[in-house]
Design a protein around this nucleic acid. Sequence first.
DNA 1: CTGAAAGCGCTTACAG
DNA 2: CTGAAAGCGCTTACAG
Lengths: 326, 326
Amino acid sequence: MPVNLKQLAAELQLSTATVSLALRDNPIVAEKTRKKVQALAAERNYIKSNLGMALQSKKSRIIGYLIDGVTKTFYNEVLQGAGEAALEQGYGLLVGLVSKDDKAANLRQANLLLEKDVDALIVSEHNGVIAPYLKSFEMRKKPVVYCTCEAPRPHFSVTSNDFLGGELAVKTLAEFGHKKILVNANSMNKQRHEGNLSAARAAGIDTVDFKRTSDILRLLKRYSEITAIAAYHDTEACDIMFELKRAGYRIPQDISIIGYDDLPICSRPEFMLTTIAQQRSMLGYRAVMLSLDLIEKRNEPFGNIVLDPSVVLRESVARPGKRRAR
Amino acid sequence: MPVNLKQLAAELQLSTATVSLALRDNPIVAEKTRKKVQALAAERNYIKSNLGMALQSKKSRIIGYLIDGVTKTFYNEVLQGAGEAALEQGYGLLVGLVSKDDKAANLRQANLLLEKDVDALIVSEHNGVIAPYLKSFEMRKKPVVYCTCEAPRPHFSVTSNDFLGGELAVKTLAEFGHKKILVNANSMNKQRHEGNLSAARAAGIDTVDFKRTSDILRLLKRYSEITAIAAYHDTEACDIMFELKRAGYRIPQDISIIGYDDLPICSRPEFMLTTIAQQRSMLGYRAVMLSLDLIEKRNEPFGNIVLDPSVVLRESVARPGKRRAR
DNA sequence: CTGAAAGCGCTTACAG
DNA sequence: CTGAAAGCGCTTACAG
């Protein structure tokens, strides 16, 4: 019942060449012929097989997407954006779901994607674990695009501007009138932390570094002027909020907190967390678009696309009151 | 630099047929020859292109996975399980990310997957929206496997046993000593609700139906013997918990609450929600396995696989105390 | 045990 | 404007 090019051609008494061109509406074929071909194709519910085309053109029109941790990160939203772009452009998205712990699976997955003839690879991970398995892509001149927070240097990438995000967080606190704040300075958090410091200098306010949630209460006791906290990310912000409430602090009357990421949990009534939102699905969308530019060498492709985050105001940041003594 | 079968054959002074067989370690080829071929293939970093094979065998060894709402549901964990199974079996997983609102995108996505020659389709959705776009798969005799809470009847499917889940929820409350409970009875929730009622009968305890979170406070006032609530899912459970706390109820001292799904939020200290866990990644895993059975007609495939959920005990369910009057 | 040939479903020069 | 031919990278009968 389902029909292929050859059968279509036979039924129309035309050559496969003509039918092939007509289906793509190539004006080299007489308009009348084109219409006739397209009409029959529609009637027969003809769907072109990618295989023949791919073999011929050495382009599968499929993009690989290697994701480390779909379930534990917001990469599922990045994936959503990538899916939209791929669909728009008629590309397939072949996913490789890996975890940083499983080196063997990483290697097998990279090879599997190559075997399935993907034209390019998008990588979302943040541990630098996948890189060693990507040599085969380079050897085959298949573009690799990193789509993550911070990309390893010499690669094509679509990333979120973490420095700006860090600035926005502190700028927001400063605008609400906070003069001395705690900022996260763990080792994963270089960019945002630098942004924090830069904005603090610009606004003329004081910062104190913390590394872990468990440091917070001690630091608040020590520096009674501190009235706000810029967390590493939303989950940490929620953890801090929990600890502070348990210790008797009111949020935001005593202490304001700002998160990072705008996870769904932020809008729950228990938290109402003011935070910095990344353009999650746009990250994926642009990564696919950049990949296509590289595959089809359309535009002179931008090597490193950086998307700006933005502030989402909720209720966890307010003007500083007089902190109640504890 | 990257090499194909033909070049490998030329370099080895063998026919492509022999090389092809040798690479798959077919014993019809002399062992010595096989080793020689495999050695050179490894040295040259040969990766077999799927295209030739797929065209020849009419099997792409790629499975399509149509997901309605990766970002808003736990389908991302189902996807994870599907990815594991696919990798194990050497299959690619081509994702189609759709949303129920966008009919045009649904159709285009289904056709795109077909165009990319997927061998089978897995569908995760729960609105019955995708079904009309799946005729082309049936016409082409491509297996379609539903992987969702409730699958439309005559299809192959991998689902979670919602009736049992509903039973487990109420059985848990009964075991903790609750005698009269509120159970969710909204129209989406038939299976779990029936399970609730069945377990209540078995345990000899009373149930009162509610439909919305906003009904709860009124019902608790009206029936002062009620000491526990079985929610539709975790998010509802958290909402209820919020409302109850605001109204001055203590959880679980005054009212116990049980959720459904075991979302990550359940283990946050603010909630510590006792709940029913579905085998999320196993759903995806089995869906891929069932698809392969259907594609390769290996085993007489089971039409409808049902996975059992289980109870996860945390702190939101306890023995009933004497409810404080409000 | 190995090779020559045909073919999977397309597209792309090239003739006419 | 249309057709005959070659070919993309493999595999599968079939000969030898």
